[in-house]
């Protein structure tokens, strides 16, 4: 097992890198001047790819690794992995579900509070000395406000559980109504947006969900509405969101993800009613270690011919 070649696509975690290095023949893609250079030398040695959402496993990479057996991604999201190609080739795919659920849900509630209660703006106000010159204005109460969740998977459910502790009525939109769940279901995202104050995007990015939060949804959410996105940037039509915020058609937004990361539309950086995070939804020391352990566990299980811990298929 020690000789198996493992390719890490991106420097996602020092701990993971060290652990992989001590167990396998680890190749760091970023150590090579180009992907082509790397493939010329090592394409036949690689039996496992460890990827993440910055650098995944696309069809081209998979095709150029003839002995690839498993792709283990250090993420929940699979949008940077060509799943169809993996399935055709019989390549196993694992991700890191569950472990980061709590962190992303915490981040979502943190964004709601920071946006509605204007906490980051307050912090700016104090740091730039403005408090000595006058009082900061009012902010909006969160407890008890209607929360609408787009995508009631693990993360969406964890957000709902937290929002319930704030006395918020919960409703949701997803492909189908979930059995045994008492939250109000909307089969149309526009109807959900029209009936909540805070819309939280927590679904996966797929062809169906790309730009699902469009102008119509934003306008249904309305003047007092708050949009939170902790899913993926392209789920929201960012240009429409920016124009709604600039035109005052939306009260505010809390965004952990963007369409073209790490680029963030410059107009957003000048607005006071938005909170902008650099895609840190699951980025805690504790969770990153748990995710790394899961990636290692899956790769090891594969080579030991044991059941995978968190297979995607």
């Amino acid at each position: 097992m020690e000789t198996a070649g493992v390719l890490m696509t991106y420097p996602m975690s020092t701990y993971l890198e060290q652990e992989l290095d001590s167990r396998f023949d680890l190749f760091r893609l970023w150590d090579f001047p180009s992907r082509t250079k790397f493939l010329q030398q090592h394409s036949h040695s690689i039996r496992a790819v460890v990827a993440n959402t910055t650098c995944g496993a696309d069809a081209e990479l998979i095709d150029s690794l003839p002995n690839l057996e498993i792709v283990s991604t250090y993420s929940v999201g699979l949008d940077k992995i060509d799943l169809v190609k993996c399935m055709e080739r019989g390549i196993q795919v694992t991700n890191t579900p569950e472990v980061l659920t709590d962190d992303v849900a915490d981040c979502a509630i943190g964004l709601v509070l920071a946006t509605m209660r204007r906490i980051c703006e307050c912090d700016r106000f104090v740091r730039n000395g403005a408090w000595k010159k006058g009082e900061f204005g009012l902010s909006t109460k969160f407890s008890g406000k209607a929360v609408g969740i787009v995508g009631l998977g693990r993360i969406g459910s964890a957000i709902a559980k937290r929002a319930e502790a704030f006395g918020c009525p919960i409703s949701y939109f997803s492909r189908s109504k979930k059995p045994d769940i008492n939250y109000k279901y909307y089969s149309s995202i526009v109807d959900l947006a029209a009936n909540c104050r805070i819309l939280i995007v927590a679904c996966a990015l797929t062809e169906e969900t790309r730009h699902i939060v469009n102008r119509e949804v934003i306008d249904a959410l309305g003047l007092e509405g708050i949009l939170i996105n902790i899913g993926r940037g392209p789920i929201v039509d960012e240009a429409e969101l920016v124009s709604a915020l600039l035109e005052g058609r939306l009260a505010g937004a809390g965004l952990d993800v963007f369409e073209n990361e790490p680029e963030v539309p410059e107009q957003l950086c000048n607005l006071e009613n938005v909170v902008l995070l650099p895609h840190v939804g699951s980025d805690t020391v504790e969770t990153c270690q748990a995710m790394a352990d899961l990636v290692i566990g899956n790769v090891e299980a594969h080579f030991l011919k044991k059941p995978l811990l968190t297979p995607v298929f």
Partner: peptide, 28 residues
């Protein structure tokens, strides 16, 4: 309720460094 909300907001902000991260994004 408002004070409790705010306390939770401040706590998440400190642990997850939201205000500092927002500064990081805004400053490019």
């Amino acid at each position: 309720e408002d004070v409790a909300d705010y306390a939770v907001g401040l706590l998440i902000d400190v642990l997850r460094r939201l205000s500092a991260a927002d500064r990081y994004v805004r400053s490019g």
